[in-house]
Computed example of a mutant assay.
Amino acid sequence: MFYRQAGIHHTTYRGDRQLFPIPFERWQLAALLALALAAPILLSSLYMKSYVLPWLIWTAAALGLNLILGWAGQFHFGYAAIMGIGAYTAVHATRNGIPFEIAIVLAGAVATLIGCAFAITALRVRGLYLALSTLALQFVMDWVINKVPAVSGGTQATIQAPPLRLLGIEVKSDAGLYYVVLVWCVLVTIFMLNLRRTGLGRALVAVREKDFAAAVIGVNSFYYKLVAFAMSSFIGGISGAILIFTFYHAVTPEQFAVNVSIQVLAMVIVGGLGSVIGCYFGVAFILLLPGIVANLIFAGAQAMNLKIGIELLAHIPSFLYGILIIGFLLFEPLGLAKIYTNMRNYLIFWPFGYARK
Rank of each mutant, 00 (worst) to 15 (best):
residue 220 N to T: 04
residue 223 Y to C: 13
residue 219 V to F: 09
residue 240 G to N: 06
residue 191 F to G: 08
residue 214 A to T: 14
residue 154 G to R: 12
residue 189 T to M: 08
residue 221 S to F: 10
residue 231 M to E: 00
residue 176 G to C: 04
residue 197 R to F: 07
residue 154 G to A: 11
residue 132 L to W: 13
residue 210 K to I: 10
residue 239 S to E: 03
residue 190 I to D: 01
residue 216 V to C: 09
residue 207 V to H: 12
residue 169 I to Y: 13
residue 223 Y to A: 15
residue 184 W to I: 01
residue 219 V to H: 08
residue 207 V to P: 12
residue 156 Q to S: 11
residue 148 V to L: 12
residue 225 K to V: 07
residue 132 L to N: 11
residue 146 N to K: 15
residue 237 G to N: 12
residue 165 R to W: 01
residue 200 L to P: 00
residue 186 V to A: 09
residue 204 L to C: 04
residue 163 P to N: 08
residue 149 P to I: 06
residue 208 R to M: 06
residue 233 S to G: 04
residue 203 A to D: 04
residue 173 S to I: 03
residue 194 N to T: 00
residue 143 W to R: 03
residue 231 M to Q: 02
residue 140 V to K: 06
residue 230 A to M: 10
residue 150 A to T: 05
residue 150 A to H: 02
residue 175 A to L: 06
residue 133 S to G: 15
residue 202 R to C: 03
residue 191 F to R: 05
residue 227 V to S: 04
residue 177 L to W: 05
residue 218 G to H: 11
residue 209 E to F: 13
residue 179 Y to C: 06
residue 217 I to Q: 14
residue 217 I to K: 11
residue 177 L to A: 08
residue 210 K to F: 14
residue 221 S to H: 14
residue 169 I to W: 13
residue 178 Y to W: 05
residue 181 V to F: 04
residue 186 V to K: 00
residue 197 R to C: 00
residue 217 I to C: 12
residue 169 I to G: 02
residue 229 F to A: 09
residue 175 A to E: 07
residue 155 T to R: 10
residue 169 I to Q: 14
residue 169 I to S: 10
residue 181 V to M: 07
residue 176 G to Y: 05
residue 210 K to N: 15
residue 135 L to S: 11
residue 174 D to P: 00
residue 138 Q to F: 10
residue 200 L to I: 13
residue 179 Y to D: 06
